[in-house]
Amino acid sequence: MASKLTNEEVYTLLKNAFGDKVGEMLTPFDLLTVEVAAESANAIIEWLKKDEKLQVSYLTVLGGVHYPEDKGREIAVVYHLHSLVNNFRIRLKAFLPIENPTIATITYLYVGANWMERETFDFYGVIFAGHPNLKRVLNDDSMDYFPMRKEYQLEDATREDKDDRFFGRE
């Protein structure tokens, strides 16, 4: 089923509505990818959902990425949205500084975002302002770091059961 919208069309609408809150248009593998200003991410998602023509009203997935080298914009929150009516997918990215990774929640738009946001908090420490119950979802509450950030190793740092010499870790 072909998409009823083109990337250019949606991008132009988005740019006209939000101006400089919307970054340049990228289309890796034909999927419209737009960087948005973190403070207006939820407004843009709301607009996409409520717009009568676009009807981007299905949240496919939401997650984080950590770019430690990119100073001031270390944490990215990535939204994949889907317009089931038009069969059109769009990816939005908002970048946050690691000192204060705060972004508005979208749980009031999509109930399903609840756990996805909690997971992103659990993995990357992103604070979703206005989230009804922002606490760890997969890891134990007693965990004191955000394991998916690049500086943390995969293995458990406190383990005693393995001889480091056998794993190339002195």
Partner: peptide, 12 residues
């Protein structure tokens, strides 16, 4: 699963 979240064997 040699990871931060998995118990390395139940004999622990």
């Amino acid at each position: 699963f040699d990871t931060y979240s998995v118990l390395q064997g139940i004999d622990r």
